[in-house]
Design a protein around this nucleic acid. Sequence first.
DNA 1: ATAACAATATGTAAAAACCACACATTATTT
DNA 2: AAATAATGTGTGGTTTTTACATATTGTTAT
Lengths: 250, 250
Amino acid sequence: MKKNTALRDEIKKQNGGLIKDVFQLVGSYPRVPITVDCVIFGFDNNELKVLLIRSDFELYQNLWSLLGDFAIDDDEDLDEAAYRILKERTGMNNVYLEQVKTFGNPVRHPGGRVLTVAYCSLLNMQHHQLNIHANELHWHSLSSLKDMAFDHKEILDYCYSWLQKRIQEHPLGFNLLPDKFSLRELQNLYEAILGVTLDRRNFRKKFASMKLLIDVGEMEEDVSHRPGKLYKFDFAKYEKNKRSWVGIDF
Amino acid sequence: MKKNTALRDEIKKQNGGLIKDVFQLVGSYPRVPITVDCVIFGFDNNELKVLLIRSDFELYQNLWSLLGDFAIDDDEDLDEAAYRILKERTGMNNVYLEQVKTFGNPVRHPGGRVLTVAYCSLLNMQHHQLNIHANELHWHSLSSLKDMAFDHKEILDYCYSWLQKRIQEHPLGFNLLPDKFSLRELQNLYEAILGVTLDRRNFRKKFASMKLLIDVGEMEEDVSHRPGKLYKFDFAKYEKNKRSWVGIDF
DNA sequence: ATAACAATATGTAAAAACCACACATTATTT
DNA sequence: AAATAATGTGTGGTTTTTACATATTGTTAT
């Protein structure tokens, strides 16, 4: 980094102490390829799943990989790049997506230094018809995953912890469920993500007190026992009061 | 991004569907300069301060800038780069530092596309003798800041919100105070960061219940009225129980 | 049809956390 | 020595959290 400082000083000297030619300066600095990797969580069969693709790197044959791509090719913002990649891979836009962390280990990519910005996405598996072509894409249960390509296991683990925390601060679980869901489904979701069991009565009370559930006046169908009421999430109300949200705190 | 996909497909075709030459692939992708920007918070005179440097860009004359530098020159990890930059600028290591967010607006830098990873740092202004040379570095009170160079105001605002949240989840305030501090100093710090006033008795009770304060058996000196007890923070105990930490919740 | 079943739905009481609030104490200053 | 300004501490009311049991409703099996 001495080199950088020296160059910057030289540029400054030419301009009475100020950097004038910003292109010269920026042009002189080292560059790295940037990728975006999406950790896409889904929920099915009472299990938290993550959407992965079989690695197309010979080095990582038979290993799974997060959905990512090189970004920053066009003049797009990072978030836009993430949304684009998500759309390319899953066919869906309008999903929950949030930046989580940037990973910059110098040896994380075998092809040289590549920085990756991890994004976390939650999506409703019923709602989103995936472009699953040629068996490339698979939903994996988290527990069954061991090795992955690159440092993707580390990224996934980090994002899972992030999700566990985040879902207790904001009611994001709805992004993982169908539009209409029963309280039991909602509770199963939270239990699966947090890895705990919750008291049904207290859980229901908690969500009742938030007043974010709208009783759609329908009942579950095709369940093998007494059907429960169906609810939908009041996204509008949540968006309005988002700022004042403190936590869910089971 | 079409271009990227095409190239990747071409490389794959040459290798029976697998990417073999990872250097070829990575080498073919666009690269961007990466910077690290540190938002360094300090606390003095009952005010939260941020350490800034006068911009040396002609375009931003008289504006203030976060402490940053181009990173990823050597084979250092992102965190290492942040620590290095912090050390270069302030002379200190062994400070609290955490990655906050990556900013990738394509026009955030006038010299072309530059990504920056924002780090947040908390440091004890008494403890750390800064390398403040030639009036380049200044501690600014947050309230007095308006325009800044680049998108640094946006970054700062984001990091400030981040800090407000973070300090309620983990007792980080100690990184901003001298080794020995009174409860009043601690409360002032929290009040300044959160922008609220707190009840002294409840505040003390809260911290007492955490059992992270060690009474050092000394009293304040040079205060103009009754001196208070001095405490230090039990870093070891905190580190041990970090995982189980839930929140401070005023 | 009826009984067994399995899941929904709901209320209450104890414990814990939170919040508001007042007074005695101790150095310092005048 | 009196006034001042800050420290230090306890209690009661309120809210939130937690633990826990029984009646209800639709399905399934006999």
